[in-house]
């Protein structure tokens, strides 16, 4: 399988083009890095690839077929700030099981404690919440994962823990991963190939 972006262009409102005629492929099982200076549209590209924004020009397809806008999206995005990605009025159990029910094995490998499931989001730290967001996104139906600076706000140990799990799961389920990061060391460590934005 292959996720393909063809001739993408994007602007917010009447602003300048943030993305101009961009082409990108991500194969199943591939770990692709995306880096570039701030303001070059990394986050926007991540959102377009995962269906959060519609491009003004070009298309995003999987194996030449467009991605259905309803139902579970096989391209899942994980955000930088987990605090905003969980509903503050939901107990963590509900958030975790919103898309699918992650098995105990995955929870254990991510270091999610049973006691956390009964907590509210404001009682957990960013690193703990991000583990939940990663578990949610690693559904068996996920074919591609877009990780937009997912460990930028976390300490080095949590960062390494989360990435080890993501890489294992990606290998196991043959998921293609796009690693968006400004951390050159992290990209060198994780990725097979790097795509540089302008």
């Amino acid at each position: 399988m292959q996720l393909e972006a063809r001739n993408l262009s994007f602007r917010y409102g009447k602003g300048p083009l943030i993305i101009n005629n961009l082409n990108l492929e991500l194969k199943s099982g591939e770990i692709l890095g995306l880096s570039g200076p701030s303001g070059c549209g990394k986050t926007t590209l991540a959102k377009i690839l995962s269906g959060y924004e519609l491009p003004q020009g070009g298309s995003v397809k999987i194996d030449g077929k467009s991605i259905p806008s309803k139902g579970f999206n096989p391209v899942q995005l994980i955000f930088q700030h987990p605090e905003k990605a969980v509903n503050p009025r939901w107990q963590m159990k509900k958030t975790l099981n919103e898309g699918w029910s992650p098995d105990n094995e995955l929870l254990d490998s991510l270091g999610i404690e049973k006691a956390w499931l009964k907590r509210w989001p404001n009682e957990l730290s960013g690193g703990e919440l991000q583990r939940f967001c990663v578990a949610k996104a690693l559904s068996p139906k996920t074919r591609f994962l877009i990780a937009d600076e997912i460990t930028t706000m976390l300490d080095a140990i949590t960062q390494a823990q989360i990435w080890n799990v993501v890489l294992n799961k990606a290998r196991e389920n043959n998921i293609g991963v796009l690693v968006v990061s400004h951390d050159q060391h992290l990209i060198n460590r994780l990725c097979d190939r790097v795509f540089i934005g302008k």
Partner: peptide
Amino acid sequence: SAEFVQISRQMGK
């Protein structure tokens, strides 16, 4: 436009 609502949509809700 909150992220958790958008994620929910992408989860097929």
